[in-house]
Amino acid sequence: MTRTLYVGNLPWATKAEDLANAFSVHGEVLSSRVITDRETGRSRGFGFVEVREEDAEAMIAAMNGTDLDGRIITVNEARAREER
């Protein structure tokens, strides 16, 4: 089983690889992505990391409130996308 973690307040220059590298210290990262604006291609300042279920709680505890390239990031379990 896997769980998806929400990562907020990312530095604008953060790439998916940077996110994966930061989290891989605390467990296995299956995938990572930084959300970008459709029109400009610029980061929207948040992303998602997919991890093994057994690593999720430890990663949240270890990474929430930590400094990533000069910004304090927020990490929690991602919620399901709301219907529009």
Rank of each mutant, 00 (worst) to 15 (best):
A56W: 00
R3S: 08
T14V: 12
H26L: 09
P11K: 07
R42A: 11
R38V: 10
G47K: 03
R42V: 10
E39Q: 15
V51P: 00
G41T: 07
M59W: 02
L30G: 02
T14E: 08
I35Y: 05
E54F: 07
L5Q: 05
R81V: 07
D67I: 05
A16D: 15
A80L: 14
L5E: 03
E54D: 15
A78I: 02
R81W: 09
H26V: 06
G47D: 04
N9E: 14
E82W: 10
D37Y: 10
A13G: 09
L10S: 01
R79F: 07
V34W: 02
F46T: 01
I60M: 12
T4L: 08
A20W: 01
M59T: 04
N21Y: 08
T14R: 06
L19Q: 03
E83K: 15
N9K: 13
T2W: 06
I35V: 15
M63D: 03
S32Y: 03
D69H: 10
R79W: 07
I60E: 09
E82I: 08
D37R: 11
E39H: 13
T66L: 06
K15M: 11
E50I: 02
T66N: 05
T74G: 03
D67T: 04
V7Q: 04
T40R: 08
E39L: 14
T14K: 03
G41H: 11
R38H: 13
H26C: 06
L30I: 13
V25M: 09
T2P: 00
V75L: 07
A61P: 00
I35H: 02
L68R: 06
R84E: 14
T74R: 12
D67C: 03
A62F: 03
A56M: 05
E54S: 11
R71K: 15
E28G: 01
L30T: 06
E50V: 05
R71G: 04
T66E: 10
I73L: 05
A22Y: 10
R84D: 13
N21A: 11
E83L: 15
T66I: 07
E28D: 14
R42F: 09
A61N: 14
T40Y: 09
G70N: 07
T4R: 12
G65R: 12
Y6R: 03
N64H: 15
A22C: 13
A61W: 08
D55P: 00
R3W: 01
E28I: 12
G70A: 09
T74M: 08
H26F: 15
A22P: 05
T4V: 11
E50C: 04
A61D: 15
A56G: 02
E39K: 13
V51S: 00
T40Q: 09
S32R: 05
E77N: 05
R79P: 00
S43L: 09
L19T: 00
S32K: 03
N64F: 04
V25T: 12
A61G: 06
D69Y: 11
T36V: 15
N21R: 13
F46Y: 15
E17P: 03
N76I: 03
G41Q: 11
E28C: 04
R38E: 14
K15Q: 13
V7M: 06
G8F: 01
T4E: 12
R84Q: 13
F23Y: 07
N21W: 08
R71H: 14
R3M: 11
A16P: 05
N9Q: 13
K15R: 15
A22H: 11
A56Y: 01
D67W: 06
R33P: 00
S32V: 00
A58V: 07
D37Q: 11
